[in-house]
């Protein structure tokens, strides 16, 4: 049972005064090493909250989350995350931002420099090492954020709507990049997204969540060969299925 993420009957609620707000209810997920899992669902279904629990930013929950059989506690370099906003520190150069991930890696200075360089290359930003974030476009900044999350060689990369704030073309291009990176690095990836096409294009499996309280509505395996053709029948069929599970009417899905 090597390198596996197990989420066992995880529930989370907030107490607001007398009221109890259930955000997640009895979530059970197993993610095999090297898989690409996407989580889709309406706003407020708790999918981002789930990522925060996995990355270790929030430990107020019931149930357990195990990585390789060990319960996770706090954040760790074994779990990287890319947020919707790039969250690069404006006072550090591209290099500095990516290198910040390795502060506590225990690697030698030389290994760190090499890792930073190779990850800048991986996301196609060679030549921009000394640039400050305000000198990068939105797409470039988001690539840098991906490089920062990957540079420490995490076992799992969590992606919290990482392409959500980008324009449509940059988004398609970065989906290709993500796919390429995933296949090259074989890192387990968990992607939260609103974009059903993105989920189908990238993942082995899609979890559809529903809201109030956040729970898993269905699991859909995606067995298409990579790279996937967004215009194929199989793709459209899957999309129809995911959307209908998300409570969309199936006739509207073609237009979307």
């Amino acid at each position: 049972m090597a390198e596996k993420l197990e989420i066992q009957s995880v529930s989370k609620h907030y107490s607001i005064g007398q009221n109890r707000l259930d955000v997640l209810s009895n979530i059970n997920i197993n993610v095999e090493s090297g898989h690409f899992l996407s989580i889709v669902g309406p706003s407020g279904c708790g999918k981002s909250t789930l990522l925060r629990l996995i990355v270790g930013l929030d430990d107020q929950y019931d149930g357990s989350i195990l990585l390789n059989g060990t319960r996770i506690g706090g954040t760790s370099l074994a779990r990287g995350i890319v947020f919707q906003d790039h969250r690069l520190l404006p006072w550090l150069t591209l290099e500095g931002n990516i290198g910040l991930s390795l502060e506590n890696s225990g690697w030698s200075r030389q290994d760190r420099a090499l890792a930073v360089e190779s990850h800048i290359e991986l996301v196609g930003l060679t030549g921009f090492e000394k640039n400050y974030p305000h000198q990068l476009s939105g797409g470039m900044a988001q690539r840098a954020a991906i490089a920062r999350a990957l540079v420490g060689k995490p076992e799992i990369l969590l992606l919290d709507e990482p392409l959500g704030a980008l324009d449509a073309l940059t988004r398609l291009r970065l989906q290709d990049e993500l796919l390429r990176i995933w296949r090259a690095q074989a890192t387990t990836m968990i992607l939260v997204t609103h974009d059903v096409d993105e989920a189908i294009f990238l993942s082995n499996e899609i979890l559809v969540m529903s809201a109030k309280p956040g729970r898993i509505a269905s699991r859909i395996a995606v067995d298409l060969d990579y790279p996937r053709d967004r215009a194929s029948h199989e793709f459209a069929d899957l999309k129809r299925r995911v959307l209908s599970d998300m409570d969309f009417s199936s006739n509207r899905s073609e237009a979307a």
Binding site: V55, G74, T75, L100, S101, E103
Partner: peptide, 9 residues
């Protein structure tokens, strides 16, 4: 939050 994710002391 980022600093926590990156496990900065």
């Amino acid at each position: 939050e980022l600093a926590k994710v990156l496990t900065l002391t």
